[in-house]
Design a protein around this nucleic acid. Structure first.
Lengths: 335, 335
DNA sequence: TATGCAAACGCAATCGGTATCGATGCCAAG
DNA sequence: CTTGGCATCGATACCGATTGCGTTTGCATA
């Protein structure tokens, strides 16, 4: 690896002159400058980013924490983050929390130890204490939340319009004649869970359908739990005629379970689910989905973070970007 | 951020003593050592990895190049890589080639500029010149290939047993009475394409079925091409009774196209495809798949690379690890 | 001729941590 | 009393690039 000193030695110049020539400083003789530039190009000189980082205390790296990489939604988000970061000369270091609070805290520490310039995070399902994030913010450290956010941290946030997505899905089910719409959702304390529930309730209200608490089921990541939830829903005296599921894993579980039980979709029960699977149209039956703007979420969050990092003055005006959802109606929810 | 010098000043010691105390050097008074350790813990001291990197010319980072992150197979591979890398204190920097040779070359340069300690790469489909990789190897730089490999580079490689996978799938189709088995595959110059074709041929030979070149279709990433291929196969006078597709995107395209054409699966045409989709069982019909050991591939490749990086002597004995495939038989290929 | 003043470039400190080489103090052996 | 050896710790160069400041030119002006 060729360094500035190598170039300096070869051209009988001082390292400082070479450095300035490479950076195009005005106080270098154009001829000298050209000489250095040519030689550097010939020798394939690249500035050592590690030395730069040490000097400037900027690593040109951002950290990303997601619950799981191998999950269609998050891998699409990462795709969007990559695209933006790559174009702006940053690299992306990825961590998985695996929905564990402890791993999330460790990942944050790890990132700080590695001196990333900023963090993008979608909070783990089991994180209810946000001290690890608040500490970063207290130190003026740039953190952008996406998808799973929280009110307790004041910063930039990027989310899908969960309310509108749930509202549209519910309204669609109502418009196809359904009245007893079960709401299968994730953990109750998550922001996305709450927003989606509100969208659902709001749509019911619009059509004067009473909200029935017994139709709402909160499910953890235990696979058996969703099966239990479905069975208890079907056991109701006034059992549901539609399922609205609010997460990928829940959507797929619903489908698997209902099929196993021999329930006809959509004749017996109509089905709409939040999902970013690219093969929803190939499922049996082709599945109506609310699709999250995953790629755009990644892009937007990365933009915000990098703008923030590169901003001179530290007076930033935080806001929350809300990206539109898309409802794709397929056979699972048609008459 | 607290540094060694801060600690030194606070405890009236020299930076070198603090450094040695933190590293547990034997030549430090146990009491002094404890003092330093306690103070460092209290102040949340983390060694600056950037300074370490500059000194030791090791970045403790590895680069990964995949065609696309948001692809079930590759995201599972990355998952495996991550797991191993973090346990061993490395971080993972991910690049996408998007199946472009140019982007692959740029990514390599980018990684070198960033001084990663090693590279894991699954070669882009349109890479037929390997000079960029050979240059790395010429400089004794650790590179491990996975999935898409090449004979032109002598190094560690990790692949799935493509031959066995294709053989098993073909044999299964034959055992269900199929004799005209179409082979829909990827670009002809890829290692995986060739190995899978060999497996297919070998299974045909075993059962004395003549190999018919007209049943083999090579498809690029153009979506229309697969449709054309399928139509031309169905137009044959002796048209196929089974489709064997050799990549995720092809498998899904086959399914989409055949369904659109109103062809009954598996009655009219039996279907088996290579795929790492986790929802194959929910497709219509439930889809027989050859599943690649994605996670294990990532783990193995990362292991090999890190062992190599950390090895003292540079005499490494290259080999190619072959991981078993799994054939999951579902309705799409049953009688 | 002396002085001023740019233009062009070199010196050396710096970032944080490590490693080499001393330096010091103390105790025991000669 | 001197010398050697050990235990313990400090000063400093170094990794690669940047940067404030100083220095050397050449040239024009008083």
């Amino acid at each position: 690896m060729v360094t500035i000193k190598d170039i300096a030695k070869a051209l009988n110049l001082s390292p400082s002159t070479v450095s300035r020539a490479l950076r195009g400083s005005y106080e270098i003789n154009p001829q000298t400058k050209q000489l250095v530039l040519d030689y550097a190009a010939k020798m394939h000189y690249y500035p050592n980013p590690i030395a730069l980082s040490l000097k400037g205390s900027k690593s040109k790296a951002i950290g990303v924490i997601v619950p799981e990489i191998a999950h269609s939604y998050f891998s699409q988000v990462i795709n969007g983050i990559e695209e933006v970061a790559y174009k702006r000369g940053y690299h992306v270091v990825i961590f998985q929390s695996l929905e564990s609070y402890e791993r999330e805290v460790i990942s944050i520490e790890n990132m700080m130890a590695r001196r990333v310039d900023g963090v993008l995070i979608s909070i783990s399902s089991y994180t209810i204490d946000f001290a690890h994030l608040q500490k970063l913010r207290d130190n003026q450290f740039p953190v952008v939340l996406f998808d799973r956010i929280t009110d307790e941290i004041d910063t930039f946030k990027v989310v899908a319009d969960n309310f509108a997505g749930a509202f549209a899905a519910t309204e669609h089910l109502i418009s196809t004649g359904r009245r007893r719409i079960a709401h299968i959702t994730s953990l109750p304390w998550l922001s996305i869970t709450q927003e989606r529930l509100e969208g659902y309730k709001s749509a019911l209200a619009k059509y004067d359908i009473a909200f029935d608490e017994s139709l709402v089921k909160y499910c953890s990541f235990d696979a058996g739990e969703i099966t239990m939830a479905i069975k208890s829903l079907l056991a109701l005296t006034d059992s549901p005629d539609a399922f609205l599921s609010m997460a990928d894993r829940l959507t797929l579980s619903c489908l698997t379970n209902l099929k196993e039980m021999g329930i006809n979709i959509p004749t017996d029960i109509s089905l709409v689910g939040f999902s970013n699977l690219t093969v929803a149209h190939l499922l049996d039956p082709p599945f109506s989905t609310v699709v999250q703007p995953a790629f755009e979420t990644g892009q937007t969050a990365a933009q915000l973070l990098l703008d923030w990092i590169e901003k001179k003055d530290k007076n930033v005006d935080f806001n929350t970007k809300k990206l539109p959802m898309k409802l794709l109606i397929r056979k699972s929810s048609q008459l």
